[in-house]
């Protein structure tokens, strides 16, 4: 079973929920950090990074001795990543999405594909939790292929919690695709409600069952609760607004370790999400 934790807006407690949840499960569990632009889950775990795998995308390399400068590759490329001015084409690696089209259309077979690094995937073991983390290279705009690489660590049937990137754009979809259910974390504020509504709209397109965690309950109003009731989305956990939680977080400590009175909340969430994955949330 794969449970994705996501949010329409960053900083709502998505990583907090994912890591605390992984922590209380007790049995072996994969925690997969798909927030490759800002991976943070490791900051809350104690362990050493082990293996590191470099991830790249295939980009074209032109054999000038074979190229006759016909320019077909440049006419084909939708991304302007390869372009010819009547001689051997120039390649612009950072624009290439790695579709392989230029190599396929080249009549002289003058293009072969080589790897271009976009980031790394690292693994950390912290007790029963195995963290798989993708880290995008600074300045590289290609998050989805790295997220796909991170997700190859998901093996058949092994339980996994997936920390998705914030927002509703393509990297989020790449992350939550194939999840059995999605937990959306939201704050009960006007920003929180607005971004939750966008996230729900997007998640509905993917057809994955949804549940909501309301973080910092008590700071705003009850419109997020009302929204969930109206949309028929179960509220699976309410985390109270407690300055001590924010302080523990600031030091990189987990709520369930620093404030044991909250441990039960996450245990209940773990039970509910495991059960609801079997039964299908929101159906």
């Amino acid at each position: 079973m794969i449970l994705a934790v996501a949010s329409g807006k960053g900083g709502t407690g998505k990583t907090t929920v994912a890591v605390n949840l992984a922590r209380v499960v007790g049995s072996p569990i994969l925690l997969v950090d798909c927030d490759v632009e800002e991976p943070n889950a490791h900051l809350f775990l104690e362990g050493e990074f082990g293996e590191e795998e470099v991830v790249g995308i295939p980009i074209p390399e032109v054999d000038k001795s074979l190229c006759d400068g016909c320019g077909e590759c440049g006419r084909f490329c939708e991304y302007r990543a390869i372009v010819s001015f009547g001689e051997a084409p120039l390649v612009f690696p950072e624009l290439c999405h790695g579709c392989g089209g230029c190599a396929l259309v080249c009549p002289k077979r003058a293009i072969r594909e080589v790897e271009r690094r976009i980031g790394v995937v690292r693994t950390m073991r912290a007790g029963p939790v195995t963290l798989i983390q993708g880290v995008l290279d600074v300045g590289s705009p290609m998050a989805p292929p790295l997220i796909r690489a991170v997700k190859t660590s998901l093996r058949n049937g092994e339980p996994a919690i997936l920390d998705a990137p914030p927002g509703t754009s393509c990297p989020v979809v790449a992350a939550v695709r194939d999840a059995d259910s999605v937990l959306l974390v939201a704050e009960p504020t006007p920003f929180g409600l607005h971004d939750l509504a966008l996230a729900v709209e997007m998640m509905r397109e993917t057809g994955v069952p949804l549940g909501v965690v309301i973080n910092r309950c008590g700071i705003g109003d009850d419109r997020v609760h009302a929204f969930c009731a109206r949309e028929g989305i179960p509220v699976l956990l309410e985390i109270p607004d407690d300055r001590r939680i924010a302080e523990a977080y600031s030091r990189g400590r987990l709520i369930v370790d620093a404030l044991p009175e909250y441990r039960r909340l996450f245990e209940v969430l773990a039970e509910k999400t495991l059960r609801s994955v079997r039964e299908g949330v929101g159906e």
Binding site: Y79, R80, A81, V83, F92, L95
Partner: peptide, 8 residues
């Protein structure tokens, strides 16, 4: 252009 405006 979505990207590569300078190249285009």
């Amino acid at each position: 252009a979505a990207q590569g405006a300078g190249i285009q």
